[in-house]
Write a protein that binds this DNA or RNA. Structure first.
Lengths: 103, 103
DNA sequence: TTGACATATTATTAAATTATAATATACTAA
DNA sequence: TTAGTATATTATAATTTAATAATATGTCAA
């Protein structure tokens, strides 16, 4: 039981490491809204094209996002429902105004 | 609006950085269950007393947990409801068996 | 086939984090 | 007051991660 939890913890920590950065959070927050091209994401995060591309490529490698090419554009979206769940929880906790934090 | 989000992102990333580590997740997961002494937490994470103490002290500094001394023991608990919310989401997503991930 | 734009890759230096050890403090019971 | 246990602090070397620049690839339209 504890063994299992510690394996999960390993897995979750790999996901959280990818999120634990302001610009990366901005990108993911943006993806939470639906699929976006690389350039659209560059606009949201204050980061370079190269940086965003790198980040997305890592996220894709680990299966957290996937992408679809349409002509010149590459559309990225969140592929892992558990990532979506975590991002949604974060968004609700920190970005939805007027929600009283219950004890 | 975007300005605000990016400030939030900064704030959230500081929280996530504290979580993004297997042993730290174990500790927090354990605290999700209720308050615990340092030694109890040392038992759950496979980490040294010194390490757990250090971690808790940082978390306390940033207001994510707080502690209460009872005799020789120091009881720690999650102080920030938003941390509790995120941890709960993570726990549900990764540790609750049998939950179908909805699309 | 060339120019313009969208995306991807690679390399390198700077900076932050991790793991660990050693040691200190504080409380309690005897 | 001393021994034993619980917790906290400090320091440092090793490892990761971050930031950035330079450049490459691929697609499309003219």
């Amino acid at each position: 039981m504890k063994e299992q939890l510690s394996k999960k913890a390993e897995q979750v920590s790999l996901v959280l490491k990818q999120l634990a950065h302001p610009d990366r959070l901005m990108v993911l927050c943006c993806l939470l809204d639906g699929e976006k091209t690389v350039n659209e994401l560059v606009g949201y995060a204050n980061a370079s094209q190269s940086w965003v591309s790198q980040f997305l490529s890592k996220m894709k490698l680990s299966g957290l996002v996937d992408s679809q090419k349409k002509g010149v554009f590459v559309y990225y979206r969140i592929a892992e429902p558990r990532l979506k769940a975590i991002m949604t929880a974060i968004y609700k906790a920190y970005c939805v105004a007027g929600v009283r934090s219950e004890r």
